[in-house]
């Protein structure tokens, strides 16, 4: 379990992380979301002891990361796949990490196979790696010590679609075995598919946190019907405000069960009924972080 308590990190003139508290629980994948420069990476760096917090603390199972006897065996970390010596080969980078953790050399080959880096690729220097290959190598480094906790910053960045699918299965598998996963990503769809819990950060402050269901329920319901106008009317009569989008979908804040009941009573056939999560996470993300967005996206 990762516990972050009242974490603050100030730099000369600005506060990168402002009184952030949350937990990432075992057996669950926690998604860490926020716009560029919101403080995600700084928070993660503090968690693993690379940045000293101004105040507050971050602990792994109640212990400060820096106090873990051999952190690599307990926490797998991938903060920046490009942060490797460009003149080292992929397998040598893993071999050095394995040697530091006191693991046998065979573990390196196991990991290379797990992340689908071929023996030929593993013998090339990292300078010649694509971003996706670096990500795979970084994930291999994180998993090397067979840890119980994973802290991953944008691990899906640069991966091909098959790689993203693979990563998703890997992380859900890891969590279902009781592991704790904290991952940040800008790929909202990815987070939506994989995460059980969400923490949304903007301008260094937590703007929302909770289970995905709780947060997305707030995003409301999306329904489609062959006669959307009638559906909107029926909802209005039932006292449920709704909006009729130009694509013919009807959105409301009520939960899907209620919308379904209204449609049934009104005798309207629905062609789609679901919580509005398709665009839901994106909408939620943009509205929650609206004040902190650079691009002034209308929420």
């Amino acid at each position: 379990m990762i516990t972050v308590e009242s974490l603050t990190r100030r730099y000369a003139g600005f506060t990168a992380v402002d009184n952030v508290s949350f937990t990432a629980r075992p057996g669950r994948v926690t998604g860490f979301l926020g716009p560029n420069g919101a403080g995600k990476s700084t928070t993660m760096r503090v968690m693993v002891g690379l940045t000293v917090p101004t105040s507050g603390s971050a602990t792994i199972d109640g212990v400060r990361f820096a106090d873990l006897p051999s952190p690599g065996l307990e926490v797998g970390v991938l903060l920046d796949a490009s942060a490797q010596h460009a003149g080292r080969t992929g397998s040598e980078i893993l071999a050095v990490a394995a040697a530091t953790m006191g693991l046998p050399r065979t573990r390196v080959d196991e990991m290379l196979e797990l992340v689908s880096l071929t023996p030929t690729e593993a013998k090339r220097r990292v300078r010649n790696y694509s971003l996706g290959m670096r990500q795979r190598l970084g994930i291999a480094t994180a998993l090397l010590g067979d840890p119980q906790v994973l802290i991953l910053d944008e691990p899906a960045n640069g991966l091909d679609p098959a790689g993203i699918r693979w990563m998703r299965d890997l992380l859900t598998g890891f969590a279902s075995q009781g592991g704790t996963v904290l991952l940040s990503s800008h790929l909202l769809h990815e987070i939506e598919v994989i995460a059980d819990d969400l923490v949304v950060i903007g301008n260094g402050k937590i703007v929302a946190s909770g289970t995905k269901e709780e947060l997305l329920a707030a995003a409301g319901t999306l329904a489609r019907s062959t006669s959307p106008r009638d559906l909107a009317h029926a909802l209005e009569q039932a006292g449920i405000p709704s909006t009729l989008a130009s694509d013919g979908s009807v959105r409301t804040d009520a939960d899907p069960a209620r919308v379904g009941a209204v449609a049934l009573t009104a005798g309207i056939a629905l062609t789609a009924l679901r919580s509005a999560d398709g665009a839901g996470l994106e909408d939620m993300f943009l509205s929650l972080t609206a004040d902190t967005q650079r691009d002034g996206v209308a929420a």
Binding site: G49, A66, D80, Q84, T100, M101
Partner: peptide, 18 residues
């Protein structure tokens, strides 16, 4: 210096925080 110039320190100092 390679730990900083090549940024491998990110891995080194997470494996050995001291």
């Amino acid at each position: 210096t390679s730990e900083w110039s090549q940024r491998s320190g990110l891995t080194t100092f997470t494996l050995v925080p001291s």
